[in-house]
Structures are given as structure tokens and as C-alpha cells.
Design a protein around this nucleic acid. Structure first.
Lengths: 244, 244
DNA sequence: CGGGTTATTCTCATAATGAGATTGTCTCAA
DNA sequence: TTGAGACAATCTCATTATGAGAATAACCCG
């Protein structure tokens, strides 16, 4: 049997039906804290519960495309957003309707506008991370995974600049790290480090229009550099309990 | 409508049929080189071509379970094998039969026995990495991804010990790093580093029965320690081209 | 104007790394 | 049997990276 003959005779229904969804952990920094985009479900199952934005993949649509679409449906934005695959979840009972495998994506963006509700959701909002309600499906686990990935990514990639605007000060960048990691960093050492990593940031030659809200001199402005990896990496203070 | 009523009325066929497979990048060290487990396909499509071991998930089976099953079908082993999720691939045309989303897994194991062919494969073998034939589907891309992940994991986890036996010498461990990374390492510095990272290895108090095949003294034997992360990490020599 | 705030730069101690050399044990072949 | 070469293990020394603290000066606000 040739490949053409085989395909003509092939019956897709011979395999058990599985649905594939994408779910997006979209993170931004707002109001001085890290926030995640959540949707209040308007339909069964878990109607009324908060969940990550997501939905079934469409025919002819690639996975990253589906993730970008789901995010755009809620935020209106698809530009300036970094998006990457996180992991997949496929426990047989994770969705009571049927067998559903979810491919999760992680998205970072600078301070985004208020979301608008999509078609199948009754409400959408940026929730402060750490104070999120119990989510639908296994989305709590996906969110936790996304947060851990985001924290790790800041260490060895210039991703923090994706949370900042087009230009930013070293202090703003430090604020991103402190917010995502949840730890205070030594301002002087951070400053030295950022400028010593090749390609992390490049100077615009400009400074801020005025000093900080509570005083201090004008700060120099930078934009993201051309590095894709930070070398040497910018490591979080090690926590003993995570090692063993 | 209550959730129970909703579920009773729910029709899974309303969604487009998608099949989900798991594919496994199984790596071992044999004959002084890194090798990957490949299967020669016995059925259409891509009959006769080499591919990663994998197959459709079964009803009621979780994803890691499916990956372990596929690996065990080819190698007979499921014990002593580290297995972790790699990524998912879902381009609409990646399988000519139908829409297939593949969840890939990465597996490491010490020198494994010769594989045996599974039910839907005509042949299975450990192929030296770097000299693999063109693979079926998008498996070349998955393999490349798996290799890069494996190389990175050696940096900050004690995973290298998963390639070694129950006990091993520092030189054998160095051999794992050199094989997977493809670069020679400074023996003295490596030795110092391994012993200085807390929990990486612990001494058994024993030594090898004899010296090396080509001479040299007996080496002390170690076993894997209790660390889950290496701190500080054991970084590869930086290659400028990977940073930008 | 003056105190408090913050950007930026320095200093100094300590930790980690890269490169090379030394010592002594072992295998193999002449 | 012996000498050459291989190699485990340890050490030295220069360089780089990090952590902690302090100094300087610009800027806000009351």
C-alpha cells in the first residue's frame, strides 16, 4: 500500500476523541505588583469560577497561534507580548466533559490595559499573584508552574525588559526583578551587574524628564540590548530549601 | 442548567477530532558517545523511516504514564530511568493523516540494553547523536530540542548521575559531561567543582578494583547525593554565538 | 532652604573559575 | 623487570564575579 493509498483509506475516528486546548498564563506588572490575567467562566463546567484564559484549538491553527489568539481575545493586544510554551497537562479526569489535553503558554508584557471579556467569558481581570482565588480545572498548578518558569527565566535571559516599556531606567528594571522574585535587591550591585552583562541593555543617551516621585536625581534611560542570554547569569539569592 | 445536566447533554463530537501522541527522546551513553533511541517505522505514513519512539495516548492514561509505557515497550526498562516533559508540537500539517498534537518527553538512563522492537515498529536501535538519518514527521526538531534541554539540565541539576551507574568515579562523571556537551573539560577543576557542590555526590569509601584501562591509579567511588539543584551551577564554557 | 530619597560610583572582602603544575599509583609493552 | 605513559587527586596563582557597605551628588517636597 502506498502512502497515498493509505491516507485515502485512513479513518480518523478509529482513535479515541481527545480535545486540545491552549491555556495562557499572562503576566504583567501593575500597581507595583505582579498580576495574572484571569477569566470568570460563564459556562459549564466550573461556571462562575476564575480560570486562565484559553480555549480549544481551531482547525488549521498552530499551537502558538492559538495561544496568541486567546490572549488577544482578552487583552486586545498581541504586539509587544513575549509568549512561549510552558507545559502540557493531560490527566484523564482534568476536565469532566471529556479527555482534554491542555498546552499552556506563558506570556509577559509591560503594563497592559484593562482586559475586555471574550465571547465565552463573563469577566476578565488582572489578579495580584498570591491572592488569586481557587481556579477552575488544574489551573492553579499551571499558574504555579508559570510563575516558577518566569522567575527562572529572569535569571538567564533578558526577559525582564519585556515587562518594562521601550525605554526604562536601571531602577525600573530592578523593580521588575524585585516584583517577580519577591525579594529586595542591592541597588548598587544590581546596577553594576546590569551594565557589566554584554548586550543586556544599551544606553539611549537620554535621562528621565525629572527625578523620582520622592526625590533623587534624573536617571539614565536604556533600551533592551541584543543579547538573548545573560552571561554571566543574574542569579536569585539561593534559598537552601529549594536545593534539596 | 446544573453542571450535571450540562455534562449529560454534552456532545464531545461537537469539537474537531484531534489525536494526541507522546514521543520520547531517550538518551543514553554507549560506546563512548551519546545515543538516541530510534524506531524504524513499519507502517504508513513514513514507512521505513526512522522516528522517535511514541504513539497515541490510551484512554484513562496520563501523559507521563503514556511516555513511560512507550519507552518500556521499546527498551523493556522503566526503572532507573529519569523522564520529564519536553514540549508539545501541534502544527496542523505535521502528520498527514489528521490533526495530531505530540507531547514530547525526554528520558535519560545509564547504558541501556539493546532495544527490542515494539508492536508497530519493525526495528529499534540506539543511534549515535549527530549521525542520525532524517527522521519522520518533525522529529528532527524534537530531537534537537531534547538535546539542547539535556545539555542545559546538566548545568544546574545532578542529572548527569542518571547517566552513570549506581556508583561512579569523578572521571566517569566528567565523561558524561564531556560526551553530552561535546567539549573537553579541565580534569582538576572539574574534580574540585564536583566535590565543592553540596549534595552532588557522596563518597562510598570504596575505590575501583583496578586502575584505568590505560593506566593510572584506582579512583574513589561515589554515588549520587541528595541535591536536586546544583549550587553554584556547573556552567558550560560560554559560546559567544549562543548569547546573541 | 533643608531633610529625605534615589541614581550612580567606589571600596574591600570573599567566593568561584580557568589554567597550569605536581605527586604518586597503575597498566602496558619493550 | 622496568620504563614510559596515563591518570586520579591535590595544589598554586591570577582573574573574575559577588555581597555588603559607604560616598557623592542630584532632585523632590514641605
Amino acid at each position: 500500500m502506498s502512502e497515498a493509498e493509505f491516507l485515502a483509506a485512513y479513518d480518523p475516528r478509529a482513535y479515541p476523541a481527545v480535545a486540545v486546548t491552549v491555556d495562557v498564563v499572562a503576566l504583567t506588572i501593575r500597581g507595583g505588583g505582579l498580576r495574572v490575567l484571569l477569566i470568570r467562566r460563564g459556562e459549564q463546567p466550573y461556571a462562575g469560577r476564575w480560570s486562565l484564559p484559553g480555549g480549544f484549538i481551531q482547525p488549521g491553527e498552530d499551537l502558538p497561534q492559538a495561544a496568541a489568539r486567546e490572549l488577544a481575545e482578552e487583552t486586545g493586544l498581541s504586539d509587544r507580548v513575549h509568549i512561549e510554551q510552558l507545559a502540557s497537562y493531560g490527566a484523564p479526569d482534568r476536565d469532566p466533559r471529556m479527555r482534554v489535553v491542555s498546552v499552556s503558554y506563558l506570556a509577559f508584557a509591560p503594563d497592559l490595559p484593562d482586559p475586555r471579556a471574550g465571547t465565552d467569558a463573563s469577566e476578565a481581570a488582572w489578579h495580584p499573584v498570591g491572592g488569586t482565588p481557587e481556579l477552575a480545572f488544574d489551573h492553579d498548578r499551571i499558574l504555579a508552574h508559570g510563575l516558577e518558569r518566569a522567575r527562572g527565566k529572569l535569571e538567564y535571559t533578558p526577559l525582564a525588559t519585556a515587562f518594562a516599556g521601550d525605554t526604562f531606567t536601571i531602577s525600573e528594571l530592578r523593580g521588575v526583578y524585585e516584583t517577580v522574585w519577591g525579594v529586595p535587591l542591592h541597588a548598587g550591585n544590581f546596577h553594576r551587574k546590569i551594565l557589566s552583562v554584554p548586550g543586556f541593555v544599551e544606553s539611549t543617551g537620554e535621562t528621565t524628564e525629572s527625578g523620582g516621585a520622592r526625590g533623587g536625581p534624573r536617571a539614565k534611560l536604556y533600551r533592551a540590548g541584543d543579547a538573548r542570554l545573560l552571561h554571566p547569569a543574574l542569579l536569585r539569592p539561593a534559598r537552601e530549601e529549594t536545593i534539596r
